[in-house]
């Protein structure tokens, strides 16, 4: 994508001023001028992020009624509720760019809009709840912390709040894994199996390698994105590997090894080959739970139509009562 595409000659000075503003690290606000491509990129990115929060409620919601203790049940409920809240802020942030939540929801349900592929994996055991918190929220934070400084004001502000909650979720997830790892043989095995299931999908959450990521360059220029996919992925791996070691779990990558030359001599982990075929298979809709996730959201949406219609009708009746009374 090129930032200058489809802009009229009259807009060129505005675009230059827009870029200067970004270069000065000033925020772009909803009523400010912005190139159409910037608006579209943000709508797509914030919309996908909002959808991910909302779809992400399903794999974890799957364990609320079966959570092993009251304490865990309450934490999980609070976490899933936070995710609905994140979805709401993000839809609101996207709405400031001119697209309604209804339109975005319809695009999600029709399959036109994407959400994070990670939620197309199943949560067969309680340990998956730990693994999601630890790895998926961990990867999400790596992606999201730079977004707190994103050039678009409403998105950056939403991200500050979201990141605080996400880092709490990540600690909670790691603590679940730690408890399992220190538990019985069955619990340790459950934790290891969950790590085996979630490791590669989490590593893939950062998206394609930089050489195959067409949006990165423009997004970096616009300060929507501040690091490349590979940079973030490596940072994530470097953070998680010692955490896994600490609790006695094994990262399922036989090629993972410490390389002291990485990161300008500070060292870092070299990882094995990522199965991008698997990544694209899931992105294209053929992951283990793609159909179930969307069918489930669609069912809830369709079954809730009468409720939303009633709310609209009730509000409009009340509106006319107020008008009549005036």
């Amino acid at each position: 994508m090129n930032s200058d595409t489809n802009n009229s000659v009259n807009e060129i000075p505005l675009i230059e001023e827009f870029q200067k503003k970004i270069d000065r690290d000033e925020k772009i606000e909803p009523k400010d001028f912005m190139p159409e491509a910037y608006r579209k990129t943000l709508i797509r990115q914030i919309g996908q992020h909002a959808h991910s929060e909302v779809v992400g409620m399903l794999p974890e919601g799957n364990w609320i009624t079966r959570a092993p203790t009251l304490k865990r049940k309450l934490s999980l409920l609070a976490k899933v509720q936070d995710e609905a809240g994140h979805g709401l802020y993000l839809y609101c942030a996207a709405e400031t760019l001119g697209k309604s939540r209804l339109e975005m929801t319809e695009e999600l349900l029709s399959g036109k809009a994407k959400y994070s592929s990670i939620f197309n994996y199943p949560t067969p055991t309680w340990a998956d709840i730990g693994a999601i918190g630890w790895l998926v929220d961990g990867a999400a934070i790596m992606n999201q912390i730079p977004l707190c400084r994103c050039s678009y004001g409403p998105y950056a502000r939403a991200m500050i709040r979201i990141c605080k909650e996400e880092s709490f979720h990540q600690r909670q997830g790691y603590e679940i894994m730690l408890t399992l790892a220190r538990g019985t043989k069955d619990q340790r095995e459950m934790a290891q199996r969950a790590l085996n299931r979630w490791w590669w999908p989490s590593v893939m959450m950062f998206g394609p390698s930089d050489k195959d990521s067409p949006n990165t360059e423009t997004s970096v220029k616009w300060k929507i994105k501040r690091h490349t996919n590979d940079e973030l992925r490596e940072k994530f791996i470097d953070a998680i590997v010692p955490q896994a070691k600490k609790i006695g779990l094994t990262i399922p990558d036989k090629d993972l090894k410490w390389d002291k030359k990485r990161n300008n001599g500070l060292g870092g982990y070299a990882h094995g080959k990522i199965d991008w075929e698997e990544f694209w298979k899931v992105v294209k809709g053929n992951g283990p739970m793609n159909n179930e996730r969307i069918s489930s959201k669609k069912k809830a949406w369709d079954e809730g139509l009468w409720v939303r219609n009633a709310a609209r009708m009730h509000a409009s009746k009340n509106q006319s009562t107020v008008v009549a009374a005036e």
Partner: peptide, 8 residues
């Protein structure tokens, strides 16, 4: 959870 008629 996750199946309500609106996000609210």
């Amino acid at each position: 959870c996750g199946h309500a008629p609106t996000l609210e």
